[in-house]
Simulated assay, not measured.
Amino acid sequence: MPSPSTKAFLPLESNPEVFNELLRMLGVSSRLQFEDVFSLDEPDFLPHPALAAVLVFPADDVLKADAASEREAYAGSGADEPVVWFRQTIQNACGLYAILHGVCNGEAVRYIEPDGVLARLLKASTNLPPEGRARVLEESAELEKAHATVALKGDSAVPESAEAEVEFHYICYVMSAKDGHVFELDGDRKGPIDTGLVLSEGEDVLCEKVVGLIRKYADEADGNLNFSLLALVDRGSES
C-alpha cells in the first residue's frame, strides 16, 4: 500500500518459508515459526499456542476509513507502551511490518536473539516516538538487505518495480504482555488498535473470540484469493 516515503521495498509473498527465512536473518530463534492457517472453521487446523496472527487481505476500504476517522494519531513510546507499533513509511513493506509487529510483542519477544539485527533495531527505536522509530527502520541497511533477499523468493511473480501497486495488505494480531489485551497492528493506520478483547489463561491469538474478528475480514473478502492467514508459533526445538 502507498506510504508517505520515497523508499519502497518489493512486497513479500504470504509464504511461511519466506517469512521464516526473514526471521532467521533478523536474528530470531528457529523455535519461532510462521505456519499457514488453512481453515478458520475447523479447530484442528488452528495451531496453538499462537503468539501472533498475520492476516493478508484486500484492505483499501479499511485504510480509507481509518484515515478519515477522528481517531488521533498515536504518539506513544518507551517501556510503558501496551504494544510496540511501527508506523509504516516504506511503500509495499506491509508484510515486513506485520512480521515485526508479531515478533516484537507478547511472548514472541523472548525469541529475539540479543546480538541480532532485530535486537539492535529495537534498542535503537523503542524509546523514540513513531516518527523516529520509523526512521530507524528506513535507515537500516541490514533490514533492507535481509528483506530484499527474501522478497525475491517464493512462488509468486515478483513485481517489476518496488513502487508497483499491490492488491493486498498485511495486518497482525498480538496480545499485549502488559495487560492481556488483543491488539490489531497495522503500520498504515493511525496507531495500534485495542480490540477490547482480553485473553484469559490458556487462550491465545487464535482462540475463538479472536478468530471471530478475523472471520469478519474473511467474509468481507468474499472469496478473494489475496486473503490468507499465518500463525506465529513455538515449535519447541532448534533447527
Rank of each mutant, 00 (worst) to 15 (best):
E131D: 15
A75W: 00
Y97C: 02
V117K: 05
I193S: 07
L197W: 02
D61N: 08
Y97T: 06
A148I: 01
E107H: 12
G187Q: 05
V83E: 02
L96I: 13
V84T: 14
A151T: 06
G78Y: 03
A119T: 11
Q88W: 02
N127C: 10
L118V: 13
G154A: 10
L143E: 08
A67K: 14
S176H: 10
Y173G: 04
E160T: 13
E160I: 10
C104R: 01
A93C: 09
V62N: 04
K178D: 03
G132H: 11
Q91A: 04
D60E: 13
L185C: 06
T89P: 00
E167I: 03
E160A: 15
A148F: 02
K190G: 13
R120A: 15
P159E: 11
F57R: 02
E70R: 13
T195I: 02
E70Q: 12
V62D: 09
Y111H: 14
K190V: 06
D66N: 15
V109C: 12
Q91Y: 00
A79T: 03
G187C: 06
R120W: 02
A134C: 09
A119D: 13
T149F: 14
A75T: 14
E72P: 00
G180P: 04
R71K: 13
D194P: 03
Y170P: 01
V136D: 08
C172R: 05
R110Q: 15
Y173F: 15
S140W: 11
P130R: 09
C172A: 14
E184I: 07
P82H: 10
I171S: 12
K145R: 15
A164D: 15
A119G: 10
K145Q: 15
Q91R: 15
V62K: 06
G95K: 05
L55H: 08
A177H: 12
A73D: 11
A151N: 08
L100E: 03
D61A: 14
R87K: 14
A146T: 06
G78R: 04
E113N: 08
L137T: 08
S156N: 12
A141C: 08
T149R: 15
L122W: 01
Q88I: 01
F168E: 10
A75S: 09
D194F: 05
P192M: 08
A146N: 07
L55W: 06
A177L: 11
V117C: 14
N127R: 12
I112D: 06
A151I: 06
F86R: 09
H101C: 03
V150Q: 05
D179W: 11
A59F: 12
D155A: 13
